[in-house]
């Protein structure tokens, strides 16, 4: 038996706050301490981590490791891996949870290689029983659900957004400032510029509602209809939720109506929102691979035989150019009435 105990969550910043996936991971970690021991600790990195500390405490982090450095202002694998390695040395945890985002994946890969840890990626569930930790990972485009364990303690895992609930449980965390020496090699890559042309965008992975348009939308201009529905739905979701985002099929991205970050599917993003509304998307297997773990799927398509209907909880056979604006209007009316 190992004497390592507790769970270390590697925090991911997002617009000056902790990303939802981090809050979800902290919430889930709290429920696992019975089996893997405590505490739930969080490592926060950035130019100024003070706001992150407070937020981590609000969600129940008993201990927060902080690393404040201008070198950590913008993500780079080198100094971030160095910092997480220092946090693992300090916390000596049994489980390390990173975000399933590109940043979290790079950190987890680097840490696993450096420390020789078992690496479990993109997990959607984690259970622990008397020290044995089992995770679930949907792979092969969601066509296989695999249950895995790591043979090392600690293990490191990356967590898919929207997999766990997010619940506050405020505690006053113990704050431990890490002193991390970055190696010269870790700082070889330098940040030149940060371009934020889509500042404030709701990230697809974190959105609770996604309205997606396919080739059936017909043109880049018509995406205004998709955006309007997303805006209306986003304004209707409860406070603290991240709101609604617009997504696209590959046909749309290839046509240049939307850029690549909007693409959902096998060669785009994998999303699991509470609600996915597919408008004018045929539902090819490569598209479904990126969205079929959504809680609820609604499809609007004029072809009654479109494969998307086979995975839709609610489908309307009709012209999206009529149905989508009408739906936006319906949502607006109902909101005004309530």
């Amino acid at each position: 038996m190992s004497d390592k105990e507790g769970i270390l969550v590697v925090a991911e910043p997002k617009d000056g706050k902790l990303a939802n996936v981090t809050l979800e991971s902290i919430t889930r970690a709290r429920a696992l301490t019975g089996a893997v021991g405590g505490p739930v600790s969080v490592v926060v990195m950035g130019a100024d981590t003070a706001p992150f500390v407070a937020q981590a405490g609000r969600y129940g982090a008993e201990r927060v490791y902080t690393a404040d450095s201008p070198e950590l202002a913008v993500f780079r694998p080198g100094p971030f891996v160095d910092t997480v390695a220092a946090a693992i040395a300090a916390a000596d945890p049994a489980v390390v949870l990173c975000s399933g985002s590109p940043d979290g994946r790079d950190v987890a890969a680097g840490i696993a290689a450096r420390l020789g840890l078992g690496l479990l990626v993109d997990i959607t569930a984690i259970e622990a029983q008397s020290g044995a930790v089992t995770v679930t990972h949907p792979c092969f485009g969601g066509s296989l659900i695999v249950e895995k364990q790591a043979t090392t303690i600690p293990l490191i895992a990356t967590v898919r957004s929207n997999s766990f609930a997010r619940e506050e449980a405020a505690v006053e965390p113990q704050v431990v400032a890490l002193s991390v020496e970055f190696s010269a090699d870790s700082l070889l890559a330098k940040v030149l510029a940060v371009a934020c042309e889509n500042a404030g965008i709701v990230s697809l992975e974190e959105a609770s509602i996604i309205v997606a348009g396919g080739r059936g939308v017909g043109s880049a201009e018509n995406f205004a209809l998709i955006q309007a529905l997303a805006d209306e739905l986003g304004a209707a979701v409860v406070a603290d939720e991240l709101g609604a985002a617009v997504a696209a099929s590959r046909a749309v991205v290839d046509a240049g109506w939307k850029s690549h970050p909007y693409q959902v599917g096998q060669t785009g993003k994998t999303v699991s929102p509470g609600l996915y509304i597919a408008c004018g998307i045929s539902g090819a297997i490569q598209h479904r691979a990126g969205m079929q773990t959504s809680d609820c799927i609604v499809a609007i398509n004029k072809d009654p035989d479109a494969p998307i209907f086979s995975c839709a909880d609610f489908g309307v056979v009709g012209d999206l150019l009529q149905v989508v604006p009408a739906l936006t209007e319906q949502i607006r009316k109902r909101k005004a009435a309530s």
């Binding site: 913008v74 330098k190 510029a193 500042a199 697809l204």
Partner: peptide, 10 residues
């Protein structure tokens, strides 16, 4: 990135 991109030199 979701917001745009980060430019690095290396």
């Amino acid at each position: 990135t979701d917001e745009g991109y980060v430019a690095y030199e290396c």
